[in-house]
Design a protein around this nucleic acid. Structure first.
Lengths: 168, 168
DNA sequence: AGCTTTGTTTCACTCCGGTGAAGGCTCTCT
DNA sequence: AGAGAGCCTTCACCGGAGTGAAACAAAGCT
């Protein structure tokens, strides 16, 4: 994933978006401005005017972190679903479903494909898939993930759409 | 935990130690030297000569990260479990369990793996492990550590989640 | 003797997967 | 438009399995 350069504090609003989507970013901080606080490991900053080599070095570090990190959800070897610093345990059936959705993250996965994954010999009830999708939805919601329905096509896993509600 | 300032590359050896113990550290990089590669989130660097405010800002960020769960616990030579600024003594069985969990900090350790560690010849009872995990939980809670259960898989050691869900 | 450590039993509780039923939504047919 | 038919969501419930937790008893250490 590419590192985004953001002028601070001019592009504060853009920064908020990037933080929420978990994109790696390097802030270009003006000569007299104090840098923002950031606990996020995918964020860094340089003081302007900056040496080009230093900027490159920081960008490289952020890129390395981003490619090591959870920009995309993943199911680790222990059956945990990890996404952006958070994780949750999954039951066996949920792991099967989540596995299919994660493989095609952001794209539609057919109901039958999911069903076959969870129950290769055939689903117990037609309703079973729906119920397990519902349970999966609730479980992954705290991670910032959501399963969206595409009617008569299937389901689609994506990061929760963050409606940037400005708080006055 | 305090951030350690390290001159680079003069104090490379000292840096290695700090990396191993997971201490947060800020490298003071000479004017013509290129900074070292580091994916570690508890490490940062500044180019000398540096503005004092910038150094303070980076130190503050590292401190925030360290106290936010990026530090790693360790069992020292005396059998004490140390985490951030605190420590606690462990009984022999608890030390075995904690050892296994610390080794794979943040990842799941199977129940049987833990049991085999504490009782190589076989656990006395099935519930013995549960009870000792319970006791370990209580002992490490004051350190800001928690053992989370991953049902039917094992246990996972992590820094206590600081849930701040309120938004007014 | 007091304290800690360890093992054991027992009970309560949560989680998981499957099922039926009660709707809500959207599209189509008449 | 109105009725109906999918399609999907959500809820409530059950039996079984996996865990949490307390209480108790036996050692061991100082």
């Amino acid at each position: 994933m590419d590192v985004v350069l953001v002028r601070w504090p001019e592009e504060e609003h853009r920064l908020d978006e990037l933080r929420e989507t978990g994109s790696p970013r390097l802030l270009l901080v003006g000569p007299q401005v104090s840098p923002p606080e950031a606990v996020d490991c995918l964020e860094d900053w340089v003081r302007l005017p900056a040496d080009d080599r230093d900027v490159r070095a920081r960008v490289a570090t952020l890129e390395a972190r981003a490619s090591n990190g959870h920009a995309q959800p993943a199911i680790d070897g222990d059956g945990l679903l990890r996404f952006r610093k958070h994780w949750t345990a999954l039951s066996p059936v949920e792991r099967s479903l989540a596995g299919g959705l994660v493989e095609r993250f952001g794209a539609v996965v057919g109901r039958d494909a999911l069903a076959k994954r969870a129950w290769p010999k055939g689903a117990p009830t037609r309703n079973a898939l729906d119920v397990h999708v519902l349970r999966l939805r609730r479980r992954i919601a705290p991670l910032g993930l959501e399963v969206r329905t595409v009617r008569s096509r299937g389901y689609l896993l994506q990061a929760t759409a963050q409606v940037t509600l400005d708080r006055a």
